[in-house]
């Protein structure tokens, strides 16, 4: 049975608004899932994933790129990454940050650079390890495509605004909904 994953989108990508946007997303998620709302207190450990001190079971992942901020919220761990397509030296960056399988895939699919990057970053967000010196030690390419790999981890490349690549990473079958956050929280937290 698919597990719901709610993705919230805002066209406000100011870094100072991120925490307030996340709290707005969690409130919407609580309302839609019938969960009692609380004063959520966000904890940012030096290592590992941030979490809500009074609701550690709420799993979330935040991303921003270009004009957009997004978060994915679920009851199971998720990783979400958005990348705005831009002109970069893809092979040079790939040779430093990608697994040899991914570099080979990129050589055959030159337009897939940001899909590979978004998949890789969504995976390290899922695990909480972040981008580290081992970023090139794993491959999101399996069987000649970006897909199910890494011990059952699934990569879902989702349709989004033109010029952007969005990837959700999880270890379950996800029922995804995307909701826009139209109210813009102003005060930084």
């Amino acid at each position: 049975m698919a597990i719901p994953v709610s993705i919230y989108v805002s066209a406000n990508c100011r870094p100072h608004a991120s925490t307030n946007l996340l709290l707005a997303g969690v409130k919407k998620w609580c309302a839609s899932s019938g969960r009692a709302q609380a004063d959520f207190s966000l904890v940012r450990p030096e290592y590992g994933k941030p979490y809500f001190e009074n609701a550690p079971d709420i799993q979330f992942s935040v991303t921003h790129s270009g004009d957009f901020w997004l978060c994915a919220i679920s009851t199971q761990p998720v990783g979400l990454d958005l990348q705005q397509t831009q002109p970069v030296s893809t092979l040079k960056i790939a040779r430093r940050f990608f697994h040899p399988n991914e570099v080979e895939y990129l050589e055959a699919h030159p337009d897939a650079f940001f899909a590979v990057w978004a998949a890789k970053e969504s995976f390290v967000k899922l695990t909480g390890r972040g981008i580290d010196d081992d970023f090139s030690s794993f491959s999101v390419v399996s069987g000649g495509r970006i897909g199910q790999a890494l011990d059952g981890t699934q990569f879902r490349l989702l349709p989004f605004s033109p010029g952007y690549t969005l990837c959700l990473c999880c270890r379950f079958s996800a029922a995804i909904t995307i909701t826009e956050i139209t109210e813009i929280p102003n005060s930084p937290v």
């Binding site: 990508c13 100011r14 870094p15 100072h16 991303t63 921003h64 790129s65 990348q83 970069v88 960056i93 940050f97 990057w117 970053e121 981008i131």
Partner: peptide, 13 residues
């Protein structure tokens, strides 16, 4: 991050 609103990819770039 706070002033330029860069994400992880931008920083690695």
């Amino acid at each position: 991050i706070q002033d330029l609103a860069l994400n992880s990819f931008d920083i690695m770039n």
